[in-house]
């Protein structure tokens, strides 16, 4: 937790400034929305966090969100499939996408950046082609299924604020991820692989299997996220659904202290990073800064965050150097 004080500070400052100078920040409706978006994006960021932890990257997850998010209403409404078939099929499909990424990276030794860049183009292209680039939606049906994402859980003692249902899968996934990373042998080995792949291999760690597993987890969570996103919004365009989501996820993970060199992942950091980004987007809106500025602000904050982190790291390293010299 100690290493997240800086990020927590930024988060608090943005919240306070927006609450003081913006309209409607502290309304129940706005807060519910913020929690909802944070939960959904955190699921994506957790997935990419695993891949980043191995020293890789996944640029394709926005397109996986799109493919799955479009495929669910397309199969349910256009083709009339049963939800009992559709949900397992799309999740298995996402896992297969991750498996393909993992095998290309570990067996063919292709660069993760390249593999997933091709994925980014490929899956969106498929989504657009199979639907004829037509908007897909639930047309008011499947309300039960969609309540997984749009449902609101009453909180005792609060009248207007009800907790978005998506926080439940997030909490479950976050606890599993945190336990995996800090308590299990495989979690330790995953991070070891990220911090020095050769040393991990020389230590007898099955690095290829772990890296492949990370890509599977990432795409699977992207698929799950895509499903929850489409349940939330109801209908979407294949051409823009999930656009840039990979960048929100990567930015959140990096803000949350995951090093792109691999080897360090923090579940708390990832969720806090996602929350910070979502509050920033929200405050740009509420402060009337013009939503055109959104990317510029996020870019600037991210740059400032990583630059500060790097400076602190160097200062620390220089101190160690001075102490260890002789």
């Amino acid at each position: 937790m100690r290493k997240h004080w800086g990020l927590l500070g930024i988060f608090m400052v943005v919240c306070i400034v927006t609450a003081l100078y913006g309209k409607n920040f502290l309304t129940a409706y706005n807060l519910m929305n913020l929690v909802q978006r944070t939960a959904l994006f955190s699921i994506l960021a957790l997935g990419v966090g695993f891949v980043i932890g191995t020293g890789g990257i996944d640029l394709s997850l926005g397109s996986v969100v799109c493919l799955v998010g479009i495929a669910v209403p397309w199969l349910l409404i256009e083709h009339g499939w049963s939800p009992w078939a559709v949900v397992p099929i799309v999740l298995a499909g996402s896992a297969l996408i991750g498996l393909a990424h993992g095998l290309l990276v570990t067996r063919l030794r292709l660069q993760p950046f390249l593999v997933t860049l091709c994925g980014l183009l490929l899956y969106r292209g498929i989504a657009r082609w199979m639907t004829g680039d037509q908007s897909q939606g639930f047309q008011g049906e499947f309300a039960d299924l969609r309540s997984i994402a749009v449902g609101r859980i009453p909180v005792p003692g609060l009248e207007t604020f009800r907790l978005p249902a998506t926080t439940i899968p997030l909490i479950v996934l976050a606890v599993i991820a945190a336990l995996f990373l800090t308590r299990t042998v495989w979690g330790r080995w995953l991070l070891a692989t990220g911090s020095n792949e050769a040393a991990a291999r020389y230590s007898g760690i099955p690095t290829a299997r772990l890296v492949t597993g990370a890509y599977v987890a990432c795409s699977l969570l992207a698929g799950l996220g895509g499903m929850l996103f489409i349940f939330d919004v109801g209908s979407a365009q294949p051409s823009d659904f999930g656009n840039f989501y990979e960048l929100y996820a990567i930015a959140a993970a990096v803000l949350g202290g995951c090093s792109l060199r691999g080897g360090s992942v923090s579940v708390v950091g990832i969720i806090l990073g996602t929350a910070t980004l979502q509050v920033l987007r929200n405050s740009i809106n509420l402060l009337g800064l013009g939503s055109q500025l959104e990317f510029a602000v996020i870019g600037a904050v991210l740059l400032a965050g990583v630059a500060a982190d790097e400076l602190v790291r160097r200062w620390h390293a220089a101190r160690l150097e001075r102490r260890g010299a002789g």
Binding site: R188, A192, S195, A198, I205, G263
Partner: peptide, 16 residues
């Protein structure tokens, strides 16, 4: 290059 996780503590390096 092939042996150590240099940024990690002795503990995790030894127990790997």
């Amino acid at each position: 290059r092939h042996g150590l996780f240099t940024l990690d503590p002795v503990r995790t390096n030894v127990s790997m």
